[in-house]
């Protein structure tokens, strides 16, 4: 049994969810996969009098294509996204990322919506979804609003989601056929110490790059200085430009010491992983230093 008792609600529709969230305010938590919430309850880090289980609310799971966007129900598990034919076809790098989160049991239970709303900094999806230009749909009693993934997470365990709002879907603009994305992460535990998402997006022959750093700071950080340095640089000319820009940008990241490593170590990882992720997105073979 968990350390604290709570009341459990299993609403059938979103109207009931909104009513419960409204009625119980600070005493209630939406409950999705539970892979993070239940751990925090067990560890006595969080305590709620009420859990509202979202898993049986219809319409919150699954993936579809709509108006050039990939629309992902927030209650979709990482496992379902790793194996989804639409995700695999249109954003294979995100499918691969989903297939490497934690372990198979966490991927089966854990949901993308729960992952984003819990906003644990050492998570894989936020940086990639930000690089892909994803937006999130938040619904409440009075309607819905769209928030860019880039603006959703404010800091550690903090998002712009209001207490009576529910994240219902993640929308990813389908990348151009010529665009390629990659995600490189490293951590000695099941969570990433640092994860870098990179996109190579040529437009009319001119290469553009999108690069986001995840896990290292309280929220995903866009590496604009690296993007600017690489603007227009074709893959076969990345070489030293990329290495220097990645190292310089990594030194500026607001890293701090934690269980995942020291700030210096994580900045080193960020430089290395930025280089690897960009090279991978640009279609270059992995480069290894001579022994």
């Amino acid at each position: 049994m968990l350390p604290h008792r709570f009341q459990y609600h299993r609403p059938d529709n979103l109207e009931q969810v909104f009513e419960l969230l409204d009625r119980y305010g600070d005493d209630v938590a939406p409950y999705a996969g539970g892979t993070e919430l239940l751990l925090a309850l067990k560890a006595r880090v969080l305590r709620y009098e009420h859990l509202v289980d979202l898993k049986r609310v219809p319409g919150l799971k699954g993936v579809c294509e709509s108006d050039g966007q990939i629309v992902i129900g927030a209650l979709s598990s990482h496992f379902s996204l790793a194996t989804d034919p639409i995700v695999k076809r249109l954003v294979p790098a995100y499918a691969a990322l989903s297939d490497n989160i934690a372990n198979i049991r966490v991927r089966v239970s854990g949901t993308i919506g729960g992952n984003l709303c819990f906003a644990e900094p050492h998570a894989d999806p936020p940086a990639m979804l930000a690089a892909l230009g994803a937006s999130l749909t938040l619904r409440g009693r009075d309607g819905q609003r769209r928030v860019a993934m880039a603006d959703f997470i404010e800091g550690e365990f903090t998002t712009v989601r209001g207490p009576a709002e529910v994240l219902t879907e993640v929308r990813i603009p389908a990348p151009a056929a010529s665009a390629r994305y990659a995600y490189c992460s490293f951590g000695h535990l099941e969570r990433p110490a640092v994860g870098i998402a990179a996109g190579y997006c040529p437009e009319r022959g001119t290469p553009h790059y999108r690069i986001w750093a995840g896990a290292i700071a309280g929220r995903p950080a866009q590496l604009r200085s690296v993007e600017d340095a690489l603007e227009g640089v074709p893959p076969d000319k990345l070489g030293d430009v990329l290495a220097e820009a990645a190292s310089a940008a990594a030194q500026e990241l607001p890293a701090h010491d934690d269980l995942q490593g020291s700030a210096d170590y994580k900045r080193h990882l960020a430089a290395v992983l930025t280089r690897r992720a960009v090279e991978q997105a640009a279609g270059l073979q992995p480069r290894r230093k001579a022994a």
């Binding site: 892979t35 239940l38 496992f79 198979i104 049991r105 966490v106 089966v108 239970s109």
Partner: peptide, 10 residues
């Protein structure tokens, strides 16, 4: 049919 951690499942 899919594995879950029963230690962290209600």
């Amino acid at each position: 049919g899919l594995p879950v951690s029963s230690c962290t499942t209600l």
